[in-house]
Design a protein around this nucleic acid. Structure first.
Lengths: 108, 108
DNA sequence: ATAACCTACAACCGTATGGTTGTAGATCAC
DNA sequence: GTGATCTACAACCATACGGTTGTAGGTTAT
């Protein structure tokens, strides 16, 4: 899923379809690559559930799935939480009376 | 950078080195793959500046760069902002008097 | 000095990725 | 019906990815 968002073209596609539905071909016109290439990008986003498709006559309308984007963001936020948890622990340790030397377990 | 975080092993490495410094070999011991493989992962994370290395004797101590993680999170958050901006616009449009049919520019 | 350890890097392999072109099925406009 | 359009998919290509093994250099311990 993060892999799907790692490509700039795909992020741009997600940005646009989050603002409203777009057909695959109208999306394809925005980028300097073939229709098939954009179609593959959309398929990759669809596989990651970042995007949904809805048939409308001969065209396929693509829209963004905000929930999946939030999931991705949450995943990264977890990393930040780990970091702040470490900071908290450091605060606790420093708050303790006569704390030992904080080496990495390698006694001198 | 998102690509660097797309791999589960690399995310796990980031998680650990955000909590404290670890040598490359001690990291390697955590995963069911060769030392060289883990070394490559660390190199990829270093290229994305998600991780820093510091020489200490014969070992190389790896630590996490929280700023880069925040940048990645911010990048995804921008997508969510686009979404909420759309919601806001929808509110405005609905608030307008006699709004026209919101088709996609294809007159019937 | 020798052995053990940590790291870096190159070479290789199978597979996935991002792109292309081409073909074919639906659907719409005329 | 015919032609234009939108989509899907297969085949192909070059490159990158994630993994392996092997080699070599620097550091520590004995």
């Amino acid at each position: 899923m993060l892999h799907a968002l790692a490509d700039p073209t795909r992020r741009d596609i997600v940005t646009h379809v989050l603002q409203g539905e777009h057909s695959v071909s109208s999306l394809a016109r925005r980028y300097p690559m073939s229709f098939a290439a954009v179609q593959k990008h959309v398929a990759a986003l669809e596989r990651a559930d970042l995007v949904r498709k809805r048939r409308h006559g001969r065209e396929q309308l693509v829209s963004g799935n905000i929930a999946a984007v939030r999931d991705a963001t949450a995943l990264l936020s977890q990393l930040e939480e780990v970091w702040s948890a470490r900071i908290d622990r450091m605060g606790e340790i420093l708050a303790e009376p006569n704390h030992p030397e904080p080496n990495r377990g390698e006694p001198i």
